[in-house]
Design a protein around this nucleic acid. Structure first.
Lengths: 212, 212
DNA sequence: GTGCCGATGTCACCTTGCGACATAACCGTA
DNA sequence: TACGGTTATGTCGCAAGGTGACATCGGCAC
């Protein structure tokens, strides 16, 4: 029996187990911690889970968790890197108008990242909605995506205001569509919802009602 | 000399002073704590200020701070109640299109709340920008304003999606205008900036670029 | 094997935030 | 004036978040 196997066995009894030094060489500490966190958040809720709990379930130390995540909330937001990368790539490659480009980028994200994961996304969303702290963090993450996309747009030569407005509007469209998609009674594909909501947004802002 | 005067004198030496029991009847504990927090955040920065510091400067106890604020961050976000109230009132009273109503509401806020406080607002903004924690909280506060306005719009008979899109778009316009206004080189009134940005938003989303 | 490096564990510590309880001012009433 | 109830504070202790400093171990180059 390898050291790792011993390790795993200890882990499965878990939760209260007190581990002597013999704990090292985790194959993917990050991944294990993320998984442990997600499980525990679902089982007991975010607030009822301590960082020590998470680390214990992953067979690691509290300190290690903080070295990899910086934050208890952060364990729930690791996919953001890929999201940002994809978003920026599409926006940069598309040469339609700024708003159209952003919407297109979000549709790509919908297809490539969210399409097959409704259940997972719903579980995650439930966790986030249960805690103000997590909602704040989500807002910040969205904000940083927006900033990245805006920067990409500016790199295409657009001015700050135009870039920001296009990105924020696109993000709004995405948020609304996403909310509908995650709602327990939905079944339309996210990408389609995005297109619909984008059209609605145009209708709302495009009608100045001309009162000169 | 009244007990209160003794109190105030002690307060002015402050900061390290250790107060025996004789500390009570603060005329406006909330206000004093807010002021103390604002001062300290400016002097030392948000992270370098502990709640105990704030309480000490206000001549109160740490525990009292938490009874009034719930949160260290919260001390910076007390004006939000009035803001929300005004926003909701204007949106409810206006009978223009939803987006127009929201923009109008933000312009009222600009005139009645922000107009005379550029310096203050800038100081506050500097503090917020210095701390991720505060940025998150600001995002959440904005989010709850948006929710309130959306609800007001829905009370006017609009459907969820329209109400949300109008509110979010209006908020985006406000954010962009506000950012320009706070920028160290600006001088146009916020209300005007809002009108300009609203026009730009229309231009961006209204131009589908027709690629059929 | 030696020796260094990177990942992890251990320990001690500060701060946030809260529950529980004590206490002092305030207010109405007799 | 005295009494009792209400409200705002202070005091104490504690769990959990978060961090710095140092010890330790496995792996890797030599």
């Amino acid at each position: 029996m390898s050291h790792r196997d011993m390790r795993d066995e200890l882990m499965s009894q878990c939760d209260v187990g007190y581990h002597r030094p013999m704990a090292r060489w985790q194959p993917d500490a990050r991944g294990r911690l993320e998984a442990a966190a997600f499980e525990l958040f679902r089982e007991r809720g975010f607030e009822q889970t301590t960082v020590a709990d998470i680390a214990a379930r992953a067979g690691l130390d509290k300190r290690t968790f903080y070295r990899l995540f910086g934050d208890k909330r952060e364990a729930l937001f690791s996919g953001n890197g890929y999201l940002e990368e994809l978003l920026v790539r599409v926006v940069t490659e598309t040469d339609a108008g700024p708003f159209e480009a952003v919407v297109a980028a979000f549709r790509r994200v919908a297809e490539e990242i969210f399409a097959d994961r409704l259940e997972l996304v719903r579980a995650r969303q439930t966790i986030i909605e249960s805690s103000p702290e997590l909602q704040e963090r989500e807002l910040r993450k969205t904000g940083s995506l927006v900033a990245a996309v805006t920067a990409a747009l500016r790199a295409r030569g657009l001015d700050e205001t135009t870039a920001t407005l296009a990105t924020e509007s696109g993000a709004t469209v995405f948020r609304v569509a996403y909310a509908r998609w995650v709602a327990p009674d939905s079944d339309a594909p996210l990408s389609d919802l995005i297109a619909e909501v984008a059209a609605e947004l145009r209708a709302i802002t495009s009608a100045p009602t001309e009162t000169p």
